Amino acid sequence: MSKTLQDSASNFDLINLDLRPEITLDDFRSASFRPILEAITKLRDGKLHELFIVGDRGFGKTHLANAIYNEYTRHTGKMVINLNLSEIIEQDPHAESLVGLELFDLIIIDDLQLVRHKQEWQEGLFHLINRIREHRKQILYFATMPARELQISLLDLQTRLSLAPMLTLPDNNDVEDRRILINTILKKKNWRLPAEIFEYLVIEGPHNAGGIISVLEFIKPLFTKLSRVQIPKKTINEAKEIILRETFMLEIADNVVTTEY
């Protein structure tokens, strides 16, 4: 190996935490995810036609939706559409995006909770579900709460959503789950943390992927271009302080959002 390559290998890579490329179900390999992965396998194999997955903000619903999209298309060769309502619902007040979706073999609807104050979207989704059942296609819902807690005014829609088998995303309270999650995030960008900071982030940092990524963005400047074997204690302590501060701020923000809901 040349000296240039050796020098490059001894430095931390710049963090780039865009998680969309190469998303797979391997990113969810912890024991807590086993029931969800088993259900996804049944969905992929055509043994399950509807599934409702619940998870709090920042716990990886959209990441999982993208992984399922990749898994399903790769293994079945069938047509899938992944519809994230947070990206389209305000621009499409009449729910025209739902027209004709029964042509797809699997329809993934992310951020389903956003339809609860949108009457036309509720009606459009109700008719879409009827068409999907008529054509024996499949549908997968992601939401921040169970169907019966969504306060949907169209009761027939609430009933149909409630009939889908429901599973809840892990809350990552298990320490080993968090280790796997942080390792997955770092591995995707070929970036390493000092062991002391890694463990501190596991124990003291956020429990969800969104929060972890946010904290990593704050500590990134401290470790960029630093040698792995020459990290000042001052830098380690500063990183710990940032982890505590930003985790606390995220908890406050989450409490505000929960209160608003």
Rank of each mutant, 00 (worst) to 15 (best):
L98S: 09
T168E: 15
A95F: 01
Y69A: 11
G55M: 00
R179F: 06
A147R: 03
G58W: 04
Q91D: 15
K118G: 02
T76I: 08
L157F: 04
G77K: 02
T159S: 15
D174A: 07
H49K: 13
K47A: 15
F126P: 02
I107R: 00
N70C: 02
L150C: 00
I129P: 06
R116A: 13
N130W: 11
E87D: 12
G77W: 00
D92S: 07
M166E: 14
A95V: 01
Y69P: 00
Q91L: 14
D92G: 08
L140T: 03
P93E: 05
E90P: 00
Q158S: 14
R178F: 04
L155Y: 07
L157P: 03
I81V: 14
M79N: 10
I152P: 06
S153Y: 07
Y69D: 09
D105I: 08
L85E: 08
E120V: 01
L114W: 05
D177Q: 12
I89R: 07
P165E: 10
R178D: 07
I107S: 01
S162E: 12
Y72F: 15
L106A: 04
I132C: 11
S86K: 14
L51F: 03
S97F: 02
G58E: 06
A95Q: 07
N172P: 03
F59M: 06
I108N: 01
L161A: 04
D171I: 08
L161V: 04
G46T: 04
Q119F: 15
H63Q: 09
F52N: 05
L103C: 08
Q151K: 15
M166A: 10
G55Q: 04
H75P: 02
